[in-house]
Simulated assay, not measured.
Amino acid sequence: MSGVWPPPPGEQPQQGAGAPSSPPPPGQPVQNQPAWAQPLPQPGWAQPLPPAHKPGAIPLRPLGLGDMLDGAFRLVRFNPGATVGASVLVAAVAMALPLVVTGAITATGDSLEGFGASLEDPNWEPGNSEIVGMVAAFGSLLLGTVLQAFGTILVSGMISHVAHAAAIGKKLTLGQAWAATHGNRWRLIGLAVLFLLLYLVMFALAAVPVVALAIMVDNPVPAILVGVLMFLLLIVASIFVSVRFYLLAIPALMLEHTGVVGAVRRAWQLSARQFWRLLGIWLLTAIIAGFASQIVGFPISLVSSIVGIAVPDLYFLATIAGTAISTVVAAAIATPFTGAVTNLQYLDQRIRKESYEVELMEQAGLLSR
């Protein structure tokens, strides 16, 4: 034993003949400080996120999952007119078509009245007028669904501008958000059509070997096995294309004033080495939005079913009406929320890879150019 003991906790170590050492001048490092007196390094996982300016709905730093979900709710509450209002307006206009067509057919003729008889008579067969009425009603519903899909694409473009403005503390009205999409609307539609065609081609390529085996081989087992395999491959390929090429393409197209090809290229760049992060947040957002839409839409579907059973002659109209109203309610919940999270993912990737928060601070007036 050397007889030298470390000082008690809270006391400074003695130097030389026991005289207390004078502190170094301000700004100068402490010389010959023993190892046990050095501050312990903090592990990386224990360090909190750096402080960040928050002029709007999100902090201007790399975003975590909680930041995105909270930011999406804040964005919708901060600007309900240009998010929920736009989604409801588009869905209501599109779903008004099947409602008007079905209501007119039900009120002016008997082409749909006999449809309720199928509930009481399983052997009931529709006549020509019933077939025409059903084709018109379902055809108008299909057309309304297509119109709503294209309208939702335009609303997604509007939400890109709304999210960017909310990030820097600004609020866009419905008219301002719509005006901000000027010049990019047809590009946005073209982007959606391009990927729709791509998905159709992928589906056709997956179906070719299954159909070929079903025709050439008498035993259906090989065709079924190959069909299951191609179906799984189709799902994987569709998810990969959606995450790497399409998910961030809409915000890039709207905010960077690029073309369709340029937006796809930017989506590929921003999603590099971020596939699982983007996919996980995307799936979680879809689950939350879908669950909320089902909870709200279930009572509507239940009421329409009860009306259709209680009044068989109105069964068809009640079914179409329930579908239309449920679609509008789902659009009011799902479209703004999922669109907001997607655009926050876009901002997050630009902040992580391009220090985009500096430009956002300049736009918010926190930094001088």
Rank of each mutant, 00 (worst) to 15 (best):
L194I: 12
L194V: 14
L194P: 01
L194W: 14
L194R: 15
F195Y: 15
F195G: 11
F195E: 13
F195I: 12
F195W: 14
F195H: 14
F195Q: 14
F195K: 15
L196Q: 14
L196N: 14
L196M: 13
L196I: 13
L196K: 11
L196G: 15
L197E: 08
L197I: 15
L198V: 14
L198G: 15
L198I: 12
L198N: 10
Y199M: 13
Y199C: 02
Y199Q: 13
Y199F: 15
Y199E: 12
Y199A: 14
Y199W: 14
L200P: 04
L200G: 07
L200N: 10
V201L: 15
V201N: 08
M202V: 11
M202Y: 08
M202C: 08
M202R: 06
F203L: 13
F203T: 11
F203H: 10
F203P: 00
F203I: 09
F203A: 15
A204H: 00
A204L: 13
L205W: 08
L205G: 11
L205K: 08
L205Y: 04
L205C: 13
L205S: 09
L205A: 15
L205H: 04
A206W: 00
A206Y: 02
A206R: 04
A206T: 04
A206F: 07
A206S: 13
A206C: 12
A206H: 02
A207M: 12
A207N: 02
A207L: 13
A207F: 10
A207R: 08
V208N: 01
V208L: 14
V208D: 01
V208W: 07
V208Y: 09
V208M: 10
V208K: 01
V208I: 14
V208C: 05
V208Q: 04
P209V: 04
P209S: 06
P209K: 06
P209D: 06
P209T: 02
P209L: 06
V210P: 07
V210D: 02
V210W: 03
V210I: 09
V210F: 04
V210G: 05
V210Q: 03
V211C: 03
V211I: 14
V211Q: 02
V211G: 01
V211N: 07
V211W: 02
A212F: 08
A212Q: 04
A212S: 09
A212Y: 06
A212G: 05
A212T: 08
A212L: 13
L213T: 00
L213F: 07
L213Y: 01
L213K: 00
L213N: 03
L213I: 07
A214T: 07
A214D: 07
A214C: 03
A214F: 06
A214Y: 00
A214W: 00
A214R: 09
A214E: 01
I215F: 08
I215W: 05
I215C: 00
I215P: 00
I215Q: 09
I215G: 00
M216F: 08
M216G: 01
V217F: 03
V217Y: 01
V217T: 09
V217Q: 09
D218M: 02
D218C: 00
D218W: 00
D218Y: 00
N219I: 03
N219Y: 00
N219K: 05
N219R: 08
N219T: 05
P220N: 04
P220Y: 04
P220A: 03
P220E: 05
V221W: 06
V221P: 01
P222W: 09
P222N: 06
P222F: 09
A223Q: 05
A223D: 06
A223Y: 06
A223P: 04
A223N: 08
A223C: 07
A223R: 03
